[in-house]
Design a protein around this nucleic acid. Structure first.
Length: 842
DNA sequence: CTAGGGTTAG
């Protein structure tokens, strides 16, 4: 008949005709126009048809309603499913006894397909209330609904009903159960269902493999795959996609290629999804070339594979490559979606390209993508990285649904742009902070040298119930290292062990560095020796530990061992090495190493390396040689280089060369004030007070002040800080008498104050007083009264120790029979029985 | 009933 040949895109006019023709048959005959409309994609037409027929009161047959409903639900759009529900509601009002199970099954499936799992469950409950029992088709739909909204409790109840109703032999239903449990993270329960199945098919295996892969049990997923193949179940392309993505997660290329051999052997159909999974795996395993080749080989690309390769490039920091893929995507006339744009925004952020960033933002606005929070979050990040704080804020404040990530991106952005105050304000005002928020702010404090505050925040974070991870601990270890607080260091190490925080190469390296800076090289080396993999940074930390201790030979030995193990040196490790040489006075070795940089390792020495060499030569008193080296530099020497020479001149009291170096610094019009301070020290040492006054005046004009000397000491886990001449310290009542006593006893032992270390041109008595109140002396005094005999005293000083404090500390160690350890900004000084480990050479 | 691409901190 004519009705059955209706095309899906039939005109309204035709519809009317057809409807009129078949009116009288509708009541009794199932072959109504509705049947042919099943393939219609047009809801408007369906609506018209439906209202027309109902207006005439013609449709009352349950099977016609059923077909109408299933037609709607198969369209799978939001509107069509809502419409199907309204048809059912209307029908039920008049003919409650005629509603069928099939109608409900259709609706449950429909709601589930558009993600409205809750509605699906409500429809199911309504069905039960009408006394209609579910059948074997109901449960997969229902479980899929529960899966979509992670309705664990409901799904669990459904499982109960399945058993009660005796459906536990149905493969379809059990597969849905496995899928449900796997998605909800209850992989053990999924496995149980799987194990108890009498017969399994590909979907059973695949669902479980996917579950394992999704929840980080990638190895189990791959093993299950091999088991499946062994048992004789052939994988399909879905299985392959899952297992390949598991290999990608494992970053195991060899395993991935082994898995891939089955594609050919078992004749699995290769589709675009599989190509995509393969490209992703090769990228994640670092085989960019293979991935790119595979990508290039599939002539017609789909959007997903373009997105895959792009996002991988972005993640690896290869923004240029990502943008070239975008070009190709557009060339294929593919329309970028929000994932494409997300990667493009990140690429723009990486390049700091405000041009690309603005293009993206425009595209987002034109296509109404700003409602996706991840897009807006990426925009905030991008504008921050391009230095456009105001625009980033504007995007942030326009967001209707800000997430933690939005707030975190804002905080990180402020910090990147040096506005720690704003970051702090945002952090305190955000509705809920997560681990990332805390890590961001803690690492910012460390960068700002606010170490005590960083540790305080770490403690606060724990009292808020947020568990630290290895990122937190890297920051905290580094803060502790700068504080030189050994007890805290040991506590941190124990904390990591106790809380089973996984120690990756970064954290281990941070711990090595921490113990090194806290003056515990043996613990530093213990951790270093336990490391399974060591990169250049790890070796550098260990070498630094030896350098700080003044154990230069061991530092060089470590370096040689590193080379033997095939680790390629970089510029940074040479800084540590050359520093070690200068501390140990190893001129020959330093020169050899310096030369080997270019000739053996192909590393061109940077300005900083020349600076180290000037130190090496200068500290050995080879001032002329140092000057020669500076003059031979291929690049223009900067203020740091001249500053090193200046420092050497100070040590060897060569005023003429010091003045020459100072002239060069002045020529460079440097903003750095440290050199001026050194210069004024030299003049002061030489007794040229008028010159000192001149330099200090220059400093004043620039608005700079000498960094106040400060020392810290850790007593019973508490860190006490002292600044030079600070009389207001709460502990001063106890410290002052102790200090007096120390001065008396030390003077009796032959100490004469070295007044040249005092800058200010004040009278002799005043100078002596100021010198006697240097921060390291205050800390030493406090250490003596707060610790028991036999306990070493550990002090950390922010500047280089002055020569008076150095000889003072030597005598204190002798008179009081105490081991005194002072870490200045350069190295460790171990004072024992009147001698220092640096041999008075620093 | 089963599948693939995504933002933030170090």
């Amino acid at each position: 008949m004519a009705a059955t040949s209706l095309s899906p895109l039939v005109s309204t006019q035709t519809l009317k005709t057809v409807t009129n023709q078949t009116q009288h048959k509708t009541k009794t005959n199932d072959s109504s126009p509705i049947v042919s409309l099943k393939h219609s994609k047009n809801l408007t037409e369906l609506r018209k048809l439906h209202s027309q027929i109902t207006k005439q009161g013609l449709i009352h047959h349950p099977s016609s309603i059923t077909k109408l409903i299933s037609t709607c639900t198969e369209m799978g759009t939001f509107d069509s499913i809502i419409y199907a529900k309204s048809i059912l509601n209307q029908f039920r009002k008049d003919n409650e006894n005629d509603v069928t199970l099939f109608m409900y099954n259709s609706l449950i499936r429909g709601y589930s397909s558009i993600g409205l799992g809750n509605e699906a469950i409500w429809v199911y409950l309504e069905m039960l209330s009408l006394g209609i029992s579910p059948d074997k088709y109901t449960f997969p739909f229902l479980l899929s609904a529960c899966t979509k909204i992670s309705a664990y409790a409901e799904g669990f109840q459904v499982h109960g009903s399945i058993i009660k109703m005796g459906f536990q032999g149905d493969v379809f239903i059990l597969n849905s159960l496995i899928h449900f449990y796997s998605e909800c993270g209850e992989i053990v329960l999924g496995r149980k269902v799987f194990d108890e199945m009498a017969e399994r098919n590909v979907v059973s295996w695949t669902s479980l493999i996917c579950g394992y892969a999704r929840w980080g049990l990638a190895m189990e997923a791959v093993e299950l795959f091999f088991e499946m193949v062994e048992e004789g179940t052939g994988p399909n392309s879905v299985t392959m996609v899952c297992v390949i993505s598991a290999c990608a997660k494992l970053k195991d290329l060899e395993l991935g290629e082994r898995v891939c051999r089955y594609i050919g052997e078992l004749g699995v159909k290769v589709n675009t999804s599989m190509v995509n999974a393969l490209v992703d795996m090769y990228m994640k395993c670092g085989a960019f070339d293979t991935a790119k080749r595979l990508f290039d080989e599939c002539g017609e690309k789909n959007l997903v594979v373009c997105n895959t390769i792009m996002s991988n490039y972005v993640r690896e920091g290869m923004a240029r490559e990502a943008l070239s893929i975008l070009n190709e995507t557009l060339g294929q006339r593919l329309v970028p979606d929000r994932v494409t744009i997300l990667s493009t925004i990140s690429a723009s952020a990486q390049l700091g390209s405000i041009f690309w960033g603005k293009c993206c933002h425009g595209y987002v606005l034109r296509n109404g993508l700003e409602g996706w929070d991840s897009i807006s979050n990426a925009l905030i990040d991008m504008y921050m990285k391009c230095g456009k704080q105001e625009v980033a804020c504007a995007v942030f404040y326009r967001m209707a649904n800000k997430t933690v990530v939005s707030w975190n991106s804002l905080i990180a952005g402020y910090i990147r742009n040096g506005d720690v105050d704003s970051a702090w304000k945002v952090f305190n005002n955000m509705p809920e902070s997560d681990l990332v928020s805390w890590n961001t702010i803690i690492s910012a404090l460390v960068k700002e040298s606010m170490f005590k505050e960083a540790i305080e925040l770490f403690r606060m974070m724990q009292s808020e119930g947020i568990k630290a991870d290895r990122v937190t601990m890297v920051s905290i270890a580094s803060a502790c290292g700068y504080l030189g607080a050994l007890d805290l260091a040991k506590w941190i190490h124990a904390y990591i062990k106790k809380n089973k925080i996984p120690c990756d190469i970064r954290l281990s390296t941070a711990l090595v560095d921490m113990f090194a800076r806290c003056g515990d090289p043996s613990n530093a080396m213990k951790i270093f020796n336990q490391m399974k993999i060591r990169d250049v940074s790890a070796w550098t930390a260990a070498i630094g530990a030896m350098a700080m201790e003044g154990n230069s030979n061991q530092a060089i030995e470590l370096f040689n061992e590193m080379l033997r193990q095939g680790v390629k040196p970089d510029g940074v490790v040479f800084v540590g090495l050359l520093t070690a040489c200068s501390h140990g006075g190893l001129v020959e070795e330093g020169q050899d190493l310096f030369r080997s940089m270019k000739s053996v390792h192909g590393i061109s020495p940077q300005v900083v390396h020349y600076g180290c060499m000037v130190d090496v030569l200068g500290r050995a008193g080879l001032l002329e040689k140092a000057l020669e080296l500076i003059k031979s530099m291929p690049v223009e020497p900067n203020d740091v280089i001249w500053g090193s020479l200046l420092a050497a001149c100070r040590m060897h009291r060569n005023v003429d060369m010091a003045e020459y170096a100072a002239e060069r610094i002045k020529e460079l019009a440097s903003e750095r004030t440290g050199n001026q301070v050194i210069l004024s020290n030299i003049y002061a040492s030489a007794g040229k007070w008028t010159d000192v006054a001149k330099v200090r005046l220059q400093l004043k004009e620039k608005g700079a002040r000498k960094v106040p000397g400060s020392s810290s000491i850790e007593i019973n886990g508490e860190i006490y800080e002292f600044t030079s001449g600070d009389a207001s310290h709460p502990e001063m009542i106890n410290i002052a008498p102790m200090l007096d006593e120390m001065h008396c006893r030390v003077r009796a032992a032959g100490h004469a104050p070295d007044l040249t270390n005092v800058l200010l041109n004040v009278d002799e008595q005043e100078k002596e007083y100021l010198l006697g109140r240097h921060s390291e002396k205050l800390a030493m005094a406090f250490g003596l009264i707060s610790t028991n005999q036999g306990m070493p005293i550990r002090v950390v000083k922010n500047l280089r120790i002055c020569s008076d404090c150095h000889s003072f500390a030597k005598l204190v160690s002798k008179v009081y029979d105490r081991e005194i350890i002072i870490r200045d900004n350069n190295r460790f000084h171990f004072f024992q029985r009147g001698v220092c480990s640096c041999d008075d050479y620093w």
